[in-house]
Nucleic acid binder design. Structure first.
Lengths: 364, 364
DNA sequence: GCCGTCGATGAAAACCTTTTCTTCTGCTCG
DNA sequence: CGAGCAGAAGAAAAGGTTTTCATCGACGGC
């Protein structure tokens, strides 16, 4: 280990200044530790006189309670843990902020973890949170829903539940109706249907969906909404054209550039995510085409900077911070033994300038 | 309270829903708790035979170590806490991600907190981290450096140091040379000087600095660099025009709109932050002007989406994730009792399309 | 053949706080 | 005036783990 030599590794070596404990406070205040604890923990009514004496002693000694000792005897602690793919993704950052804010409002601690997209780290995180005694674990983000996933999450849920903690899934399904997990998510299908409808209303008939991630529940729902909208407008199923671009700006740019090289028989692009849309806009501009004159583009999520794209992006607003807040709110008010339940948050279209009527048919 | 393990009584299948402890594992494995601990903590070499016996027992019982008990006896824990203004700000998100990644690489836990800009919450956070036994606290972001600040941080630093923890300040100064704090920051002045020089080289002479926050150390350094560049080009001091826009996109938009209403005798804008630049771009577009033909704009920080602005923004890249990583790296390798030290990370210009030569002089 | 040593393991202390159980004091009501 | 009672505060147990100290057996060197 490269770091074993620093003073940070174990602080027990500095015997010089021992940590000041509640015993010291009690001694200085001339009371027993029990009384000091009663004052400091604030759980009992203690006569004003002794109360101030203890408080004064604590302040004089700069007493800091040991959260671990408290948690040890208290059997757990008020902590919520939220796991996202990456905090640098605007959508996830807002979810995390919502969780943090709501947790803080209730006096709970919030711990943020990231997976970087590796399912393995999700397992490690849950295990760690069990050790830490988190009472609420929130897993955010779509996922490919296969048997591995179902087994893994069922296991999480049961383990957490057994130790009195709660599991919340955001944007992904519970593995089964009898699995003790709460689900909070947006109605991705409705949102996608709405914005596809917006493109159809503008006159577009050949719309590409960019940004599928095969099997990913969140994206799949958007694809479903996209297909549903096409069907509603009596377009044949083969009108749907879904491209798996992968995640993020780079994925969108690469996929769009490649698509433009191959064919240009579409007039609009529905990016499954604003970051993908950003990449697509870049690729379209690099190909010498203009948005929305040549191609219309819409995104999903309405990240704050979507209004600053070129052109400002028409997209679907998914109130991410609200999702985070709602996740902890629901978890906090749902009794321990209630069955798994699902809560759906609404979305709505934000119209900006990236959509226009399709250009007149080019003569072949 | 809804959390008093209400539903656990009903579960008849688990007669004793008590948490499984190391004692249970030891019993099942037929060894003492001491031996079980030696295996489970991994701190001692234990013969293969007993080792596997204990491990098998732990697995069979789904044993989960109690992190609090461990921290209690171990005197702290491997946890780094990072405090930012908000995780939804791209720059801060990247710093947090860097901290998290580096912490995870060393097997440390990372706790992210936000202040929302209120100094009060900084104090609360540090206090909380002392209770939690964090061994490393990282405070990120510029700050107005007054006596209140100096006193507060000196107090944090000493308190943390006394309990064997370390304080790292990112983008803000240590309150004094004898204060036990590590400082890691970018050379804001050099970065600002460089990009102002870039505007000057393009021919601009009347450049507005947008986004000062009076007294804020990070912004002040950029203003200093801006002034220095003007001086290098032999422009008189009164050529400097600094506007306090406040933070974020809204601040930039409002300030820019107001400025454009008042006067238009400048040809370039140096926004102290990319988000401010985003707002400025919006305001300029709304005023019917074009970037860079009418006005050139540069930003600071190179957030990932700066390349997607309209037009793509020329800015200064400050590797935020690297800042976060470096903060924990430095803290981990600096011995406990070393004096306060300062580390500076370099920056560089990223040229895109938001700068052009100034338009020909308008006739008055 | 004995002593010193080493390796493996067990017993118990220590970490710090909360909370239950007791004790003690002073007071009120009968 | 005494019994009971309430209020205040102390003693001690509990919570789960690590680590020190102690024990015990075996083994090699003399």
């Amino acid at each position: 280990m490269a770091y074993t030599a620093t003073g940070l590794e174990n602080r027990s070596d500095m015997a010089a200044n021992r940590r000041v404990t509640i015993r010291d406070v009690a001694e200085r205040a001339g009371v027993s530790v029990a009384t000091a604890s009663r004052v400091l923990s604030g759980n009992y009514a203690v006569p004003q006189a002794t109360r101030t004496r203890v408080l004064r002693a604590a302040q004089a000694l700069d007493y800091v309670a040991n959260a671990h000792a408290r948690a040890l005897v208290g059997g757990g602690r008020k902590m919520v843990a939220v796991l996202v793919r990456q905090v640098t993704s605007p959508f996830y950052a807002h979810v995390a902020e919502g969780v943090e804010a709501e947790a803080a409002a209730h006096g709970w601690l919030c711990l943020v973890g990231t997976t970087g997209g590796e399912p393995q780290r999700e397992l490690e995180f849950v295990q760690l949170m069990r050790e830490e005694g988190a009472r609420l674990v929130i897993l955010v983000g779509g996922v490919v829903e296969d048997d591995t996933y179902r087994g893994r999450v069922a296991q999480y849920a049961q383990a957490l539940n057994a130790s009195g903690a709660r599991l919340v899934l955001c944007g992904r399904p519970a593995p089964g109706p009898d699995i003790p997990a709460l689900v909070v998510e947006f109605d991705n299908e409705a949102g996608a249907r709405a914005i596809t409808g917006h493109l159809l209303s503008a006159g577009h008939r050949r719309i590409v969906f960019l940004g599928g991630l095969p099997g990913n529940t969140a994206l799949d729902a958007r694809v479903a909404g996209y297909r549903a909208a096409l069907a509603e407008h009596r377009l044949p199923p083969e009108a749907a054209h879904v491209i798996d671009s992968g995640l993020g700006r780079e994925g969108g740019e690469r996929a769009m550039a490649e698509l433009l090289k191959r064919r240009r028989d579409f007039t609009a692009v529905f990016a499954g995510d604003d970051m993908v849309a950003a990449g697509a806009l870049r690729a379209i501009a690099d190909a010498g085409l203009r948005v929305p004159d040549d191609i219309s583009v819409v995104g999903y999520n309405d990240i704050p900077l979507a209004a600053d794209f070129n052109p400002p992006l028409t997209t679907v607003r998914t109130p991410a911070e609200e999702l985070g807040r709602e996740a902890v709110r629901i978890a906090l008010r749902t009794p321990q033994d209630s069955p798994s339940s699902r809560h759906v948050l609404g979305t709505h279209i934000v119209v900006r300038e990236s959509v226009a009527a399709p250009p007149p048919e080019r003569t072949p």
